[in-house]
Amino acid sequence: MSILHILETAFRGTIEEQDDTVIWTVHAMRKAGQEGSVVLQGNIVGHAVRGQDATGLQFGDHPQTNPVDLAGDMQKLMAAGVPIYVVEGDAADRGIAGADLIAGVQLIDRAGVAGLADSHDLVWHW
């Protein structure tokens, strides 16, 4: 049983949660033995961009000591055996070139999402 996770909602709650909650869930499910793959489409292609920096937030005397590291979390997810695909056209539309993305993500075209859907047992569109 394998799940294709299609993600498109970007930078939602990431500062408070200190991660992307869906990437976190996919990783937690992987640790519990669940097979799956991830597609980033729409604005969330930005989660795979190099050079993100969410450090420096501080409210009064309370700094955020563990700021979100979206790219790092995705690299850990890939290291755990979950491939991550990025819809190349969605990145290009947003001025993001392949060279701007973290190592390891795989570029696909729009029609490739349907092919991935067919090759997985379940498709979860987050």
């Binding site: 498109e8 489409q41 729009r110 999402v113 349907a114 092919g115 859907a117 067919d118 569109h125």
Partner: peptide, 15 residues
């Protein structure tokens, strides 16, 4: 995002 979703429906049908 919605036209993109419609495109997924189309692509799935074309497969």
């Amino acid at each position: 995002d919605v036209p993109t979703y419609y495109a997924l429906a189309r692509d799935l049908k074309e497969r």
